[in-house]
Simulated assay, not measured.
Amino acid sequence: MNDAVARETMIDTQVRPNDVTDRRIHTALQAVPREAFLPKSRHSLAYAEFDHQTSEGRYMWRARDFAKLLEAAKIKPTDEVLDIASGSGYSSAILSYLAAAVVGLEDDEAIAEAASARLDALNIDNADVVAGDIKKGLADQGPYDVIIVNGAVEIVPTEWTDQLKDGGRLAVVVREGKVSQARIYTRAGDALSCRSAFDTAPPALPGFEKTASFVF
């Protein structure tokens, strides 16, 4: 099975059956080669239905969960998007097909540079990955219409929600105990609302754990 057929099969078996109906997302998933964002040793498994580790604490999510999060975020072609913990750059590549501009954010400069090189190799000119503190977001290039977080967190930093435009959405998986839910936080003026989109269990994003408390 060649890679183009593998991508179509992934969409038909993992994405469409899980209520992802936005054809723009299907098109993006078909256009971006997952294998280009994975080590060569994992190319043959690029379209398998599991999460791929790309570096320490960073994963390329299974297509089902990532596609559902994107659909819940309701990304428009005019949106400016911040892609937090973008890892190897795959998420930023997909987002580039959905939004006007995408900036990926990574803690490690070498990882950010490698991700940007992968985007350049695919001639993606409306997305880039930069180095910075993912806990603080990227205020100097904000505010944003959409912020996507690649990993489950227990704590949602206020810096992220503070960088949303009026009407902006933060799409993030929040873990509470053994339960993880994709949530959409939406800003309306000074107010912030939240809705649960679906249950899921992607890998945790390190550094966003709640501090353990003693129980007497």
Rank of each mutant, 00 (worst) to 15 (best):
A63R: 07
W160L: 05
A93S: 09
K76E: 14
G137Q: 04
R24E: 05
K74H: 10
K74D: 09
W160N: 10
A131Q: 14
L98Q: 09
I75G: 01
A188G: 13
Y97H: 15
P39I: 02
E209W: 04
G132V: 01
T186Q: 12
K178L: 14
L170I: 07
P39V: 06
A73I: 04
F214S: 08
K68W: 00
A100E: 15
A115G: 12
A117C: 08
A6K: 13
E209R: 12
L164N: 02
E176L: 13
L38D: 06
P77S: 10
L29R: 03
A197Y: 07
F208L: 06
P206K: 07
E35P: 09
A112G: 02
A127W: 00
N126F: 01
A188C: 09
I155F: 04
R187M: 04
V153K: 01
D79L: 00
E49L: 08
G142H: 02
Q53E: 13
S180G: 05
A46T: 07
T78H: 08
Q163R: 07
T9V: 07
Y97W: 11
G151Q: 06
I124L: 11
A31F: 01
K136P: 02
A171I: 02
K76Y: 00
T161F: 02
M1N: 13
V173R: 06
Q53G: 10
M60C: 09
K210Y: 05
Q53F: 03
V32K: 01
W61L: 12
P77F: 06
N150R: 09
R16K: 14
T27N: 12
R62G: 11
A115Y: 08
E113A: 13
R118L: 11
S180F: 03
A114L: 13
I25A: 00
V130W: 02
V179N: 10
R187A: 06
Q181D: 11
T27I: 10
V102C: 08
A48D: 15
V173Y: 06
T211F: 03
L138R: 14
S180D: 04
G177A: 10
A100C: 10
E35G: 09
A46F: 01
K178G: 14
L164W: 02
S41W: 00
V130N: 04
A93W: 01
D120G: 15
Y47Q: 07
D120E: 14
A212L: 13
D79I: 08
A6P: 07
S116E: 10
A197C: 07
I147L: 07
D199R: 15
A63W: 02
F66Y: 12
T78K: 15
D22A: 14
K135Q: 13
F50K: 15
G167K: 13
P143V: 05
A93D: 08
K135S: 14
S86R: 00
A171P: 03
T13E: 13
